[in-house]
Each structure stands twice: as structure tokens, then as C-alpha cells.
Amino acid sequence: MPTKENTKWDWEITGKSNWWGNSFTELWLYRHLAVGFVRRDFLLIYQQTVLGPLWVLLQPILTLFTYVLVFGKVVGISTGGLPPVLFYLAGIVLWNLFNDTFLGIASTFRENAQLFSKVYFPRLIVPFARLSGYLLHFGIQFGLLLCVLLYYLVFQSIKLPPASGLLLVPVCIILTGLLSLGLGLLFSIITAKYRDISYIISMVIRLFMFLTPVIYPVSYVSDKWRWLVELNPLTPLFELFRLALLGEGLITITQFVYSCVFTFAVLIVSLLIFNKQSDKLIDII
């Protein structure tokens, strides 16, 4: 063999980790693994349960009952001009997507420490699989929402928003998904490094729900505190979701742009940090 042949290598491992991380082609090579993880998670949740996949539907339904009872009847929070069931269900379904994805991705390193320390694959596969899995859950729950909506259309004859607005529904879903991915990635790194933060996260996210128009419309918030709710990048997405689907919501173009910019900024920064840090974290976890 000529020696110059030896200078050509397929790969090189050095101490430097890369901000840009895995090439897209490498992620693509591992696409089956992502599908495998989604499949595993789905099978695992419903293994040896009586109701099986029905749990995906039961959770929002039970939450809906609670909300209608507590916030609708007992506390009496206004739901604007919308029937409470539709109003709450729309909020619950979208919130579940954010909440589950964020918490699921934030625990990436803690839950997979054993696996990560024994075999290499692009670490980003795990959060991507989580996001896909919860989008799947969301799809099922969204189906439930559509069924309820259909019921109200036929039997309660509520007014339908213009069909052109429906195009904005997937935009809301994608932005919510991406925001939870971005924040999840960021917190997966932080919680792996500073373990105590993981205890706080689930509490903070529960409080965060009250800053998001899940159980109340933005129009219900007094002018004095509205800025606080509007600072939340999720607020415009929830309002737009209800506006496009149910015909009622309070949103301006500026707020929507704010949400988009915030989401993509968080996502890009988180991806860079994740790529840079994920290799080093294996030494720690």
C-alpha cells in the first residue's frame, strides 16, 4: 500500500466537539432507530394495561371533566362565546402536546444514561423520536377534538369559522411542537448537568400552564396583567389555535411574529448547545 493512501480516513475522533453536530445524512441513516423508539414507547405505555391505547383518549377526557366542573361550574371562569367543553378540550389537547413533549425531551439524558454510555448513535435521534411519538398522541387526541366539534356543529348548531382559517391550525401545532423541542433540548442538557433543576421543572411547568390561556381566554385577563400572559410565546399559539378552529381568539400579527421568532431562536440555540454538549455529558451522567 502506498503511504499516501493512509492519509485518507473516513472518520476522525478528537477532543473537539462540533456546534453543528451530526450531519443530516447520519441522522437519516438512523431513521429506523427513531421509528423503533417511537414504537417501543408506544408499546411500553400500554403493555399490560386494561384499556390499552384508550388511555390516550381517557386522559384528556378526564381532565376535561375536571376543568368543566372546577373552572367552568365552581369557579365560573368565562370561556368567551364558546361552549366550555370545546374551549377546554382545545386548550387541553394543545397543552398536552407541549407539556408531554417538553418533559419527555428534558429527561433524555437521565432516562437514557445507561444506553448512551454503552453504544453510539446520534443522540438527537432520541428527542426527535419523542417529539414524533407525542405528535402521534396529539393526532389521536386531536381526532377526539374534531369529533366533539362535529357533534356541536350538528346538534348544537354553533357557528363555524371560515374554512380558510383551518390552514393555520397545523401552523400552531408545528410551532408548539418545535418550541417544546427547543426548550426540551435545552433543559435536557441543564438537568443532566445540574440535577436539582429537574425537580423544579415539573413544578414550574405546572405553574406555567396558568400563564398560558388553557383554562381562560386572553380576553378574560385584566388589562393590568395581560402583558404577563402575552409575554408567554405560547399564548398567541393557543389563541390562534382556537381562532382558526373554533372562531374565537385574540391575536395580533405582532404577537404571532413574536412567537415564531422566539420559537426558532430557542430551537437553533438549543440544537447548537445540544450538539456541543451531548458528547461531554456522557462523562458526567
Binding site: W9, W11, E12, I13, T14, G15, F116, D279, K280, I282
Partner: peptide, 11 residues
Amino acid sequence: IIRPTQGAIRG
């Protein structure tokens, strides 16, 4: 799985 502190591996 982990990165070296110094040096390199090529292959």
C-alpha cells in the same frame, strides 16, 4: 461514546 481529552483516532 466519549471524547478523548487529547489526541485523535482516525479510521
